[in-house]
């Protein structure tokens, strides 16, 4: 896409954001009653539902993976057929979604206290309702909120954010247009309170001098994301606790 200007001369992006601005974030906890934990996250037009089942007895096809000192994490990622611009039937278990599920699984294996739940299984189900770029990030953020809702012990929140580089400026939280423009995309998941990076992935090519700069802005974006998630969790907990205490 040679003709497409990702950043205008005035310094604004295609959707009118400044380079370091995140899209509008909306999140909710406890959207399902059946699941142990659930959440809904909107980052601009990217919309994700996450639900957590477990820790529970491993299902029969997981029996071989049972470990006696930690739990199994099972992650399934799926995209609704109406989620992208063109309607497309996506069979369960295609390569792209398997990859995504594996990445999300890895991310959470490092932050959930898996040793507390020996011989059990935790299921993370993610459903993209609308896909507009940074799907991995939205999924990680949604899964974190759902895990908090399920009361599963973890070290810290995991917040993810992506960034790209156009004309020497880093663009944070990129949307579908920016993603498909062919620039490099760096996504990372961080534990903001412990200040650790748990996952990072680079699609495309980036000069090594610029990686540091892009990564810094990704981490800043993650911290902004964290502020919103923390507020949502606190509000949710406060509301629930207010009734708990007086009886």
């Amino acid at each position: 896409m040679a003709g497409l200007e990702l950043i205008s001369d005035q310094g604004y992006r295609i959707d009118g954001r400044k380079p370091t601005e995140l899209r509008q974030i909306r999140c909710r906890l406890g959207v399902f009653t059946q699941a142990d934990g659930s959440s809904y996250v909107e980052q601009g037009n990217t919309k994700v539902l996450a639900s957590i089942y477990g820790p529970h007895e491993p299902s029969s096809n997981m029996r071989s993976k049972i470990s006696h000192d930690k739990c199994i994490i099972n992650c399934e990622y799926s995209q609704a057929s109406f989620s992208s611009a063109e309607r497309k039937h996506r069979p369960r278990g295609d390569r792209k979604s398997l990859d995504m599920a594996a990445h999300i699984k890895q991310t959470f294996e490092s932050c959930i206290h898996t040793t507390l739940y020996p011989r059990s299984q935790i299921d993370i189900f993610l459903q993209i309702l609308q896909s507009d770029g940074s799907n991995y990030c939205a999924c990680v953020n949604a899964a974190t909120l759902a895990i908090v809702d399920a009361g599963i012990a973890m070290k810290d929140y995991v917040c993810a954010c992506s960034a790209s580089l156009a004309k020497g400026t880093t663009l944070v939280d990129i949307n579908h247009v920016e993603e498909s423009a062919g620039c490099a995309e760096l996504s990372a998941a961080v534990m903001p309170k412990l200040n650790k990076i748990v996952y990072s992935e680079l699609n495309g090519r980036l000069h090594e001098d610029e990686i540091g700069k892009v990564l810094d802005s990704v981490v800043l974006g993650c911290n902004d994301m964290f502020a919103v998630m923390e507020r949502t969790v606190r509000e949710h907990v406060e509301e629930t606790v207010s009734n708990f205490t007086h009886s």
Binding site: V148, A153, M154, K155, D156, Y157, M191, P192, K193, L194, E230, V233, R234, V237, E238, E239, V241, S242, N243, T245, H246
Partner: peptide, 14 residues
């Protein structure tokens, strides 16, 4: 009935 201010709430990583 809201007594939430009297209790100490934490979130993961606090």
């Amino acid at each position: 009935y809201a007594h939430a201010s009297e209790v100490f709430l934490v979130t993961p990583g606090d």
